[in-house]
Nucleic acid binder design. Structure first.
Length: 327
DNA sequence: GCCGTTTTCGGCCCGACTGTTTTCAGTCG
């Protein structure tokens, strides 16, 4: 993929983050993120394209085409530079802390002047978060832990390491009473080169014994979240493991959802919306009546959306959906 | 800001969990 595309995509992504942080129209922010992904996946060098050619890239309209042209010519664009002067780069780094998103990162900056993870640690130590609306004792504790995780930073691991973890989780959970089916999903099932976390999907009428089996694993040193539908733990090695449990009837829809990349799923769900349908991990439904249409197999879900089944490894939103739509 | 298998205007994926908020915003995937 051409360097110019990576460069333009990175700047548009940065602009997306800054837009989201500064409030404003959330849909506008999404558009830039979408365009950034399309440009990153675009096979031709954007630096050599005219405006008319740029707008042929899906998700790129006149306005973004002009910004890409400006990036090609100058290395950046005016609106981005303007936001950069408003929000220091360290504030963006704050959002790398787990559980700290754009809105609260900006709040920390605006109200306490905190402009980096290091400054956040100092602010917490000095008790300065106590006065901040929406930040309680638990938040402070969680943020400190998050900063530690950020600093130890082995964020993504190789596929084989994740596969070993998944195998251990599957062994432990499938022994729990009531486990009807279990399989690794997420980037592991897509066979991505590296994975950020381990996703495991299971089917059961009662999820409690399965969730208990996960949190009882000796490797699970921290419980990040624990609910009836989803439980997340962190392993000794710092790898996050998410276990999702659904009723057996939803297996296909759930596997479809928990396998696709975020972007693939958004695309597929948009396709559903355009057909007056609603897709979730629980099935494909009629948007108006809420009536269930299909949910048992992935093939049924894709077929009902007018698509041939897409192999897991391709579910990255890099053109695989258009390639399977009838012309 | 982009886009169209009713649309060139009015939408824009969907659900789970947490913390502090007593009804929901923020975050995540």
């Amino acid at each position: 993929m051409p360097d110019a595309n990576d460069c333009a995509a990175a700047l548009l992504d940065e602009y997306t983050e800054l837009l989201v942080m500064s409030g404003g129209d959330p849909f506008r922010g999404r558009v830039y993120g979408k365009a950034a992904r399309a440009i990153a996946a675009y096979p031709h060098d954007v630096a050599g394209l005219s405006a008319a050619e740029l707008v042929r890239i899906p998700g790129v309209g006149k306005s973004i085409a002009a910004k890409v042209a400006e990036i090609t010519a100058t290395g950046s664009f005016a609106e981005l530079e303007e936001l950069r002067t408003d929000i220091p780069d360290g504030v963006r780094r704050l959002t790398r802390i787990p559980a700290l998103g754009p809105r609260r990162a900006l709040q920390l900056y605006r109200e306490l002047g905190v402009a980096s993870p290091e400054q956040l640690r100092e602010a917490i130590a000095a008790g300065r978060l106590n006065s901040l609306k929406g930040f309680g004792a638990k938040s402070a504790e969680k943020l400190l832990r998050g900063i530690e995780l950020l600093e130890s930073a082995g964020s993504r691991v190789l596929l084989n390491v994740a596969a070993q973890t998944a195998a251990a989780v599957i062994d432990a959970v499938k022994a729990a009473p009531g486990c009807l089916r279990i399989e690794a999903a997420g980037s592991l099932r897509r066979a991505a080169e590296s994975v950020g976390d381990v996703d495991v999907l299971a089917a059961a009428a009662d999820s409690a014994p399965l969730m208990a089996a996960l949190t009882a694993m000796p490797e699970a040193v921290e419980v990040i979240a624990a609910g009836p539908a989803k439980t997340s733990v962190r392993t000794r090695a710092g790898l996050q493991v998410d276990l999702r449990v659904v009723p057996l009837d939803c297996w296909g829809a759930a596997l479809q959802y928990f396998t696709g990349s975020q972007q693939h799923n958004v695309r597929i769900r948009e396709l559903a919306v355009r057909r007056k349908l609603k897709l979730s991990e629980y099935g494909l439904f009629d948007a108006e009546t809420g009536e269930l249409i299909v949910s048992r197999t992935e093939e049924e879900v894709y077929r009902r959306l007018g698509l041939a089944r897409i192999p897991p490894v391709l579910r990255e939103d890099t053109g695989e959906i258009a390639a399977r739509q009838p012309r």
